[in-house]
């Protein structure tokens, strides 16, 4: 195959460099497009259509909660750490929002704040354990995973909490901006707008603030950062707090979507979030990663989940394929890295 006609073909070394740069930037994005085309072809062959606005909206809604969780996880993974607790921290945030709104009769915005701050608090616990008590992130966050999971069950006495008196909470998050309908009954869902907004905030924090710079510094060479006078412990704690805050926001949105706090849910979401981060090209060994990559990674995870169901692949196989894609994504990303070095 040759390049499209009319485009100047860079020769020799320059061409290779351009290609490598292109791959680096758009590998994940290209994979997402290929995946969508793959399902479209499959759908056409079985006589249906994947590229509908309804499917687009369903995928956006399905991605939002884990996508937001993955934003915070990106910061942690760039420092070379890991946060296994995001799934159940999301749950306890959901529960605290519900408690605030129902049994404490606080207004919905306060409930939302309580949920997000609960996430931040759990993140702080992770941060203190890791930065102050020097417990390995894997173990510390595994512990907090269980603490949050158990507390959610204790607080709710294992039953879901509903908020039938606050329908505006659910309709606000699940509705469309200005009630605008784009195609039939479907408009652009607010929950997706919130996700993209959160992604912009995360990208700003990572790219333009001191926090972002130190996040990369910790991941590239923590010792060097320490020697050059960076207060490593404090910045690390802050990174886990940020991760918790995003998990808290995810919990609030999940509560709104389900019209309830589900105390037994959330466990296992952390693996989807970490998959999204890694598929998005963030290195588990730290020092490298982008928010855009993570968002694309989250979409890859959910386009795959949704698409496989849409074309009626048996569920057992859906799980197998999801695992295979994760491994393939990380392998291709490794190749890309090696190529660049």
């Amino acid at each position: 195959m040759s390049s499209a006609p009319g485009l100047p073909v860079p020769a020799g070394r320059t061409g290779a460099m351009v290609r490598s740069d292109f791959l680096q930037r758009f590998l994940a994005f290209g994979a997402l497009i290929v995946l969508i085309l793959f399902f479209q072809v499959w759908c056409v062959l079985i006589g249906t259509n994947f590229l509908t606005f309804e499917n687009f909206v369903n995928i956006l809604v399905a991605t939002a909660v884990v996508g937001i969780m993955a934003l915070g996880e990106t910061f942690v993974v760039i420092t070379g750490g890991i946060d296994l607790s995001v799934g159940t921290v999301m749950t306890i945030s959901m529960v605290m929002t519900a408690v605030a709104i129902t049994s404490q009769h606080l207004p919905v915005p306060v409930g939302i704040l309580v949920g997000i701050l609960t996430g931040g608090l759990m993140g702080l616990a992770n941060g203190v354990l890791i930065a102050r008590f020097r417990i390995a992130p894997f173990i510390a966050t595994l512990g907090i995973l269980n603490v949050a999971r158990g507390l959610s069950l204790v607080i709710t006495q294992t039953r879901p909490i509903y908020f039938p008196n606050n329908p505006e909470f659910q309709s606000g998050v699940m509705g469309n901006l200005f009630g605008l309908k784009i195609s039939g009954e479907f408009g652009f869902p607010n929950i997706a707008i919130i996700m993209f907004g959160a992604a912009l905030v995360a990208a700003f924090m990572l790219g333009k603030t001191a926090l972002g710079r130190y996040t990369f510094a910790l991941g590239s060479n923590e010792e060097a950062a320490r020697l050059s006078g960076v207060n490593v412990a404090n910045w690390k704690m802050l990174v886990y707090v940020v991760c918790g805050l995003f998990a808290g926001l995810a919990g609030v949105l999940s509560a709104a979507r389900l019209g309830s706090a589900q105390p037994a849910t959330g466990f296992g979401y952390e693996l989807s979030a970490i998959s999204a981060v890694v598929i998005g090209g963030t290195s588990l060994s730290g020092g490298e990663g982008t928010i855009l990559g993570t968002i694309i990674g989250a979409f890859i995870v959910y386009v795959l989940t949704y698409g496989l169901q849409f074309v009626n692949v048996a569920q057992e196989w859906q799980i197998v394929v999801t695992g295979g894609v994760l491994i393939a994504a990380v392998y291709i990303d490794n190749l890309r890295r090696r190529q660049r070095v």
């Binding site: 369903n58 509903y162 979507r257 309830s260």
Partner: peptide
């Protein structure tokens, strides 16, 4: 997995099935 069950319902709705048989994990949700 209450939320994944919602995603499943959405995907099935998009397929315009002739009928749905459903066992709810959480009826209200």
């Amino acid at each position: 997995d209450v939320q994944p069950q919602m995603d499943m319902l959405n995907a099935e709705l998009a397929k315009k099935p002739a009928a749905l048989c459903f066992a709810a994990l959480d009826s209200k949700a």
